[in-house]
Design a protein around this nucleic acid. Structure first.
Length: 124
DNA sequence: TTGTTGACTCCCG
DNA sequence: CCGGGAGCCAACA
C-alpha cells in the first residue's frame, strides 16, 4: 500500500462535498468537474460509498445528473438519503426528482481552491 | 502488472 | 420518458 498520500482523490471529494450547504445538492459530475476531470464522476460515487456511518461528510447532498438519487439496488440508502435531504428542505417532485435549477449548489473558483487546499495542503 | 468493478454520464432509438 | 451501450479512470485483488 505505498499509499501514504493516496487517499488523495477521496480526500478531495470529501472536502468538496463538505462545502455543499444544507438544503442544496450537487451532482457527481459537478464534483468531478471541480476536481478537474468531468469524467471521474463514477469515482466520486465510489469514494462516497467508502464512507463510514459516522462521517461528517454530507454525502446525501450528492445526486446524479438527472436530479435523482442513485441507488444500485440499495433502496435502504436511497430512502435515508431522500429523508435527510427533505429534512434540510430539498423538495422532490412526483417522479422522485430534485429541481437542479433550484437546489443545485454551484462551486465558485475560490471555494474549490480552498477545499482542495484543505484536502492536500502540500500539493498546489 | 493486468483485469475487474462501479452511489456516473452522454448519446441514440 | 425509458432502457441499453460505450467511455472513463482510480482503487484493489
Amino acid at each position: 500500500m505505498t499509499r501514504v498520500v493516496s487517499p488523495g482523490f477521496r480526500a478531495r471529494v470529501y472536502a468538496l462535498v463538505r462545502r455543499v450547504p444544507p438544503g442544496r445538492v450537487v451532482t457527481y459530475g459537478d464534483v468531478a468537474a471541480a476536481l478537474g476531470s468531468p469524467r471521474v464522476a463514477r469515482h466520486v460515487g465510489w469514494a462516497l460509498a467508502a464512507l463510514s456511518d459516522g462521517t461528517d461528510v454530507p454525502w446525501q447532498r450528492v445526486i446524479n445528473a438527472q436530479g435523482r438519487i442513485s441507488f444500485k439496488g440499495d433502496t435502504l440508502r436511497s430512502r435515508v438519503q431522500r429523508a435527510r435531504l427533505e429534512r434540510e428542505g430539498v423538495v422532490f417532485d412526483d417522479r422522485e426528482r430534485v429541481d437542479l435549477g433550484v437546489f443545485r449548489h454551484l462551486y465558485d473558483v475560490e471555494e474549490v481552491a480552498d477545499a482542495l487546499h484543505e484536502a492536500s495542503p502540500e500539493a498546489e
